[in-house]
Write a protein that binds this DNA or RNA. Sequence first.
DNA 1: GGGGTTGTTGACCGTTCGGTCAAGTCGCCC
DNA 2: GGGCGACTTGACCGAACGGTCAACAACCCC
Lengths: 181, 181
Amino acid sequence: MQLLREAARLFSEQGYHPTSVADIVASLSVGKGVFYWYFPSKEELFVEILRSAHQDLRRRQQAAIGEEPDPVARIELGIRASMAWFHEHRNSFNLFQFAATEERFAPVVRHNEEVAIADAVRHIKDGIVEGRIADQDPEVLALAVVGVTERLAQAYLLERDEPVDEVSDAAVAFCLRGLTG
Amino acid sequence: MQLLREAARLFSEQGYHPTSVADIVASLSVGKGVFYWYFPSKEELFVEILRSAHQDLRRRQQAAIGEEPDPVARIELGIRASMAWFHEHRNSFNLFQFAATEERFAPVVRHNEEVAIADAVRHIKDGIVEGRIADQDPEVLALAVVGVTERLAQAYLLERDEPVDEVSDAAVAFCLRGLTG
DNA sequence: GGGGTTGTTGACCGTTCGGTCAAGTCGCCC
DNA sequence: GGGCGACTTGACCGAACGGTCAACAACCCC
């Protein structure tokens, strides 16, 4: 849907509230009626954007991990897949970050994150059982890995424009040292 | 200033845009003129909130670090001070996060972060010279530490309400493993 | 007590917003 | 061709916004 993409772009560039429905339809050269034919409200459109973006990210992670048997390697592949996705979908980063700050959208973001953390926790538990990862609260470790990944993605992929591979290498290096004793 | 505190509370709870100037003055039972007597605009008030919050956080970090000679210990003290501050100023977390997503406020946040990262980089460089910290790009390491700290603070201090000390211990443990080879 | 400074009020203004809807266009099937 | 459903238009609506301002209150100093 053209509308989803254009709205996401504008929300990311100008912010959700400063972007009016009139802005969105104008930038597509269509009437306002088109918007309300496909979406019940500006709010629901944004929720839909959040949901589909997260779904896409998660698919990318799972595709990258595939059947990899080594849990530590699975985490590394997940980090790299996330980095690549953030690189290709810079818009979404802003949207997630904003959504987390507004009461109406926070539940959606929170749910998305719980899913992502649960995935990572599974791999980390496997790693602990195999003795490859430090025996600490797996959720703490998962959150730490996510924190590093997102922070480095924001700083180097979005603000500056550095090569994905190098940023991924740096994130993986720090996280694997942090995970393994 | 009463107005600053109340505005920060409302911005954090409802979001910047959904909070009107009328909301702020009403919750203090004063007229609208009071607002515009002390601040030129809603926008400038928010910038002022961001600046003073960051200034306060930075002072807290520096006070905690004090004259500590060991660079690794300095980083640990910085992490713990940040955690304690976030615990006491949950509001500010939301505000920083929102501000980063809006073009008008992003420069302020960016500047604040550059200052914070520059501080951390100094300690990390010292650590590398002493051979205590892995010889990698100090900025990457600094960003990773900040990412872990903020993510764990958000998850455990703001969303759930766990004891600061335990969360700090977890963050420090992960970061120190990530920093030292 | 009069005049000046500082602070406060809330009705009011122009603008913009999200959302509606009567009207119209288009292609498709009978 | 004519009728119908899918889709599109943009003028329009009430509400809400950020910001203004004439009026006024409280206080101090002379």
